[in-house]
Design a protein around this nucleic acid. Structure first.
Lengths: 235, 235
DNA sequence: TATCAATATTGATAAATATCAATGGATAAA
DNA sequence: TTTATCCATTGATATTTATCAATATTGATA
């Protein structure tokens, strides 16, 4: 977090924040006031670590803008990519209530902004406000379901299906466009869907030769979404 | 749930239940009273379905006694075993707050007893009682972390390591004994750790030949825990 | 008991995936 | 600029895993 720098939040109060509607909707004016005072808005450039696995949990983190990867050091010491998270995924909630230290690292893979709120402040708000607690329960359920579901889906597929799955995910869920810049390296794609770099490259090339996608360096365009979808489901 | 039958709870009130200490500790006498009145204790024999994927969520489920498997129908229509759950795992909390239908089936793999509490009752209690909400947040975090963590651990290993992992899990985490009855079939083990039945059998036989385990039908005894641990971590 | 279906087991073979090796490119550091 | 490092790519090969086939074995049921 060395190179990050603090700036005042764009909105004067957390009530103006886009997250209000989804999470802080239920707070009273006084509660919003309290929240607004205890928060910081922080920017992280691509590549910077937002949360490091093993650190003591002191704050809530909300990714406001950007894209981040969730990683962990696996039991055999290798880095494992657990998932990709957008702002609305509330990835910062993971294992927040079940551990005193962060179980995963969160690393920006695009220039990002995130909000940091003192953990104790939120804890007190939960005690006072049942609706906030309920809202948090929903968010935690959602992010956990998403991550586990994605892992289970990937396990069912072999390599071509996995590559198609991940391309579809970036195209449909994250960038909502058939043309996008891959925010992670081939090696990281491999870590995410459990395969070797060489095979990631090989299958991407294969898709290129079959004119299903086009590749220009880090930019990918999906030329035949139907075919890709078919491979994702049957390949 | 056809063959299940209702009986009064063993304790007169939920305050006497073993779960009190971990979840309902924070409730007032009146709240416990309310809870006790709205619950049912249900028995499920081995093989019976407790919750079916896709059903509307009407109740909270707490596994009190026994063992259950968590399954889902994967995108390609096959049954997939997501995890094994003991009472303290609070598996019934999964996706309870993020969906109106159950995302997973829960099936007893040993004779079990579980408590059923009306969902709305708990919802109201959450609104009134911030500590209950906090406690639920912890439980949900724990069960999600456990499932995802297990899946990530398994992904790192090849077949021998996976079998060793699952044997170690049954021995250490579930039965706390080096000798135990496997509660699931070879096929289900395969579904759980993503491999084919034939290979499950083959590797179990291999371990038997190497005198790491002994197999008598469904009973397994771990003869060399150290060797099994080594395979789990390096095999 | 006899019968049927599901599970368990083993071997042979095919297919999928990982590993090893070599090279070019890009980028950052000296 | 040179050097070093990491990433991307491709081919050849080895290893792992899945598939196919055949046969027990078990368990439930009529």
């Amino acid at each position: 977090m060395d190179k990050t720098f603090h700036t005042p939040c764009l909105g004067e109060s957390c009530g103006d924040c886009g997250f209000r509607s989804t999470l802080f909707n239920c707070l009273s004016s006084e509660q919003l006031e309290k929240l607004s005072k205890s928060k910081d808005l922080i920017k992280a450039k691509k590549g910077e670590t937002i949360i490091r696995q093993g650190e003591k949990i002191k704050d809530f983190i909300f990714l406001r803008i950007g894209l981040a990867k969730l990683t962990r050091i696996s039991s055999d010491g290798k880095e494992q990519l657990v998932g990709i998270a957008r702002p609305k995924d509330f990835i910062g909630l993971l294992s927040l209530f079940s551990s005193s230290t962060h179980q995963y690292s969160i690393i920006a893979i695009e220039d990002s902004e995130y909000c940091v709120v003192n953990f104790e402040t939120i804890n007190k708000l939960i005690q006072e406000n049942g609706k906030l607690a309920y809202s948090l329960l929903q968010k935690i359920s959602l992010v956990s379901d998403l991550l586990l579901g994605t892992k289970l889906d990937i396990d069912n597929r072999q390599l071509r299906g996995r590559i198609a799955f991940i391309l579809s995910l970036f195209s449909k869920d994250i960038y909502e466009s058939t043309k996008f810049n891959l925010p992670i390296s081939r090696k990281e794609i491999g870590e995410l869907i459990d395969m070797r770099v060489e095979n990631v490259v090989r299958i991407l090339s294969e898709f290129r030769k079959d004119k299903i996608i086009s590749i220009e360096g880090t930019t990918i365009e999906i030329l035949q979404p139907d075919k890709l979808e078919w491979i994702k489901n049957h390949g």
